[in-house]
């Protein structure tokens, strides 16, 4: 029981997982089918499924509201991800490559990591209005404050011997960073990117809270106003699913690109 290095077989792991998920489903079913709680507080599995079919296809407009919501949320996360990676990674790399740059930037960036990002939203609304720019910026800030310090730490985690060895072969200081430290830091930088993009999925509902015409956050806001708790559950489930998909896909890509990491 208390052996952290014990390896469970895949079968055993699956069994324990099924037991825990099954227990939660059972309690949920008892509470809802037994009418212990009202559906506006906690919908039953059946009601959530009804919510799903309702959102999946709208007969009147012949469109899928859920698909459209997923599309615009994914698009926002995608745009913000490209910005976060293309701006955050270089900044983190430079900070990790030069203690001077780190000393200049870290007093500005490090406090932001513990700043309540959600509280920044009203400020962004005042500065940028309620359009896409504000939403993307919000996602960007929320993720980049995580990404930059992680990228910097990935650089610092590379053993100095690689830098020294490159210098001793005639590399300039920058070349030693570029050709020895950076390539060694890449797997951890990739991990940082995965975390940063995953964080965005937790902020998407907040980003889409204000005046969204589309998006999973909009579905949640709209459904809550109508007390359609089952639709809220559907949207949350879809967000979790998308976040998981993003994570698994990105990790698989990472392992494919950097197979040597664990060696």
């Amino acid at each position: 029981m208390w052996n952290p290095y014990d390896e469970l077989s895949a079968k055993e792991r699956r069994l324990y997982g099924l037991v825990s998920v099954g227990t939660v489903l059972l309690i949920w079913s008892v509470l809802t089918f037994g009418s212990f709680v009202r559906p506006t507080k906690l919908p039953s599995i059946v009601q959530v499924f009804e919510g799903f079919t309702y959102l999946a296809w709208n007969e009147a407009t012949e469109t899928s509201p859920l698909f459209l919501a997923v599309k615009s949320s994914v698009l926002r996360v995608l745009v913000a991800s490209v910005l976060v990676v293309s701006i955050g990674v270089p900044i983190g790399v430079f900070m990790g490559a030069s203690p001077k740059i780190n000393a200049v930037l870290s007093p500005l960036l490090d406090p932001l990591r513990s700043a309540p990002v959600v509280a920044i939203l009203p400020i962004l609304v005042m500065w940028m209005g309620i359009g896409e720019l504000m939403k993307i910026t919000f996602l960007f800030i929320g993720a980049v404050v995580f990404l930059i310090p992680m990228v910097r730490d990935a650089m610092l985690a590379v053993s100095q011997q690689y830098w020294i060895a490159a210098r001793d072969l005639g590399a300039t200081e920058w070349e030693a960073v570029r050709h020895a430290v950076l390539p060694m830091a890449m797997p951890r930088i990739a991990d940082a990117i995965v975390v940063a993009v995953s964080v965005m999925w937790t902020y998407i509902t907040v980003a889409e809270y204000v005046n969204a015409e589309t998006g999973l956050g909009q579905i949640i806001t709209h459904a809550r106003r109508q007390s359609a708790m089952n639709q809220v559950f559907v949207a949350i489930g879809v967000i979790i699913g998308l976040a998981l998909l993003t994570y698994v896909t990105m990790m698989a890509i990472k392992r494919k690109i950097y197979p040597w990491e664990s060696e």
């Binding site: 011997q161 690689y162 020294i164 060895a165 020895a180 390539p183 060694m184 890449m186 040597w260 060696e263």
Partner: peptide, 9 residues
């Protein structure tokens, strides 16, 4: 050196 610092990638 003793530590050969070959790049694993």
């Amino acid at each position: 050196f003793q530590r050969y610092a070959n790049r694993p990638d």
